[in-house]
């Protein structure tokens, strides 16, 4: 992979020079410890110390509320045109979130391809940025602490510079656009990168074992844990909203005032919501919270493995940080493993 070096003092100049590639988006500080990906007018607005945004980058590709089509008697069905073709540069995406996007690519692709999702994906340039884990990060355990693809450029901190990996031809064009800002990497940079890498590996405070988790989960299918979790869980769905790989949606038709035209919308949904598995006629396949939270864990950690060969959890820690009932995925998985061994 092509690698170059960008001095930190040149980062803003580099980002400011990317206008022709799209609107610049990056993490912006909203409160002391709250960050959100959003459009910035100037690179200086980007918070480089952001470890975890409130919402993951999925919001750019599968929107919280999204028009699937509009309909009217005169024009029939029409695909929405706006915001499918806006070009953006998404700066500051950490490896876990890049893996999150790669997982969503699997879900929205396949036999039935969601062209809305992929239109937005094609129009987004992803500039990754490495990070140092905090006490909630467990991406090392989920194998998502490092990525070798899924980005156009990836910046790793090597002291006063970034080591820049060029992942795509488009990424290379971006580098060439402001080529005067980049330098070749030298021996010192290589050493700095390895030092940083070792330091990062040793910084993880949380470790969970996922290797045979599907089997452990099958063993604990009837475990009391699920009911205990159901008693704690508020069914608020926050964990789903902040999860980089939760993609469930609900569909609603919205009529205009003429009662003849309108639009079909989808909006983020959560399998923890009470009516998630409610069917017409009143039967609810998961009426109690325990069964819903069990379903969430089984789909992420068990079902996804069977379907796509890996769990869909990327270890970002958002669900743990955001849960108002203080449910921790790490605790739950650790407990599942140890129960019976106490």
């Amino acid at each position: 992979m092509k690698m170059v070096k960008l001095q930190k003092k040149n980062l803003n100049a580099f980002l400011a020079g990317l206008e022709k590639f799209g609107d610049l988006h990056g993490p912006v500080r909203r409160d002391t410890n709250d960050f959100a990906f959003q459009k910035v007018d100037a690179p200086e607005q980007i918070a480089h110390d952001c470890l975890r945004t409130i919402l993951p980058p999925k919001k750019y590709f599968t929107k919280p509320v999204d028009t699937m089509f509009t309909f009217s008697e005169a024009e029939g069905y029409r695909a929405p045109d706006k915001d499918l073709h806006t070009k953006i540069i998404l700066f500051g995406v950490h490896p876990c979130d890049i893996h999150g996007i790669k997982i969503l690519d699997l879900v929205f692709g396949g036999q039935y391809r969601d062209e809305y999702y992929f239109a937005r994906r094609r129009n987004a340039i992803v500039v990754g940025l490495d990070c140092m884990p905090d006490e909630y990060c467990f991406c090392r355990s989920t194998g998502t602490d490092f990525t070798e693809d899924g980005f156009d450029l990836f910046l790793s901190d090597i002291g006063s510079s970034y080591l820049v990996r060029v992942g795509t031809s488009l990424g290379d064009d971006i580098v060439l656009e402001t080529s005067t800002l980049f330098q070749e990497i030298g021996d010192t940079d290589r050493r700095a990168y390895k030092r940083r890498s070792a330091q990062r590996i040793n910084s993880f405070e949380v470790e969970i074992h996922l290797e045979d988790l599907p089997e452990i989960m099958d063993l604990e299918y009837e475990s009391r844990i699920w009911q205990e979790l159901g008693d704690k869980c508020l069914s608020c769905g926050t964990c789903s909203m902040v999860c980089p790989t939760c993609y469930c949606y609900d569909v609603v038709d919205q009529l205009n005032l003429d009662a003849k035209s309108g639009s079909r919308l989808r909006r983020w949904d959560s399998c923890l919501f009470k009516d998630y598995a409610l069917v017409a006629g009143g039967h609810n396949f998961r009426a109690d919270r325990g069964s819903r939270i069990k379903n969430r864990y089984f789909h992420k950690q068990r079902g996804f493995v069977a379907q796509f060969g890996r769990p869909s959890c990327v270890g970002c820690g958002r669900c743990i940080v955001s849960c108002p009932a203080a449910i921790s995925l790490v605790d739950v998985l650790t407990k599942l493993r140890s129960r019976g061994n106490e």
Binding site: Y249, V251, D269, H299, R302, G303
Partner: peptide
């Protein structure tokens, strides 16, 4: 079997049971 197959194409999640999608 019956489930809430909202999208029919394995995206919306509503009909997932364990590791299977009822719709797919």
């Amino acid at each position: 079997l019956e489930r809430k197959m909202k999208c029919g194409v394995g995206k919306c999640g509503h009909c997932a049971i364990g590791y299977k999608y009822t719709c797919l």
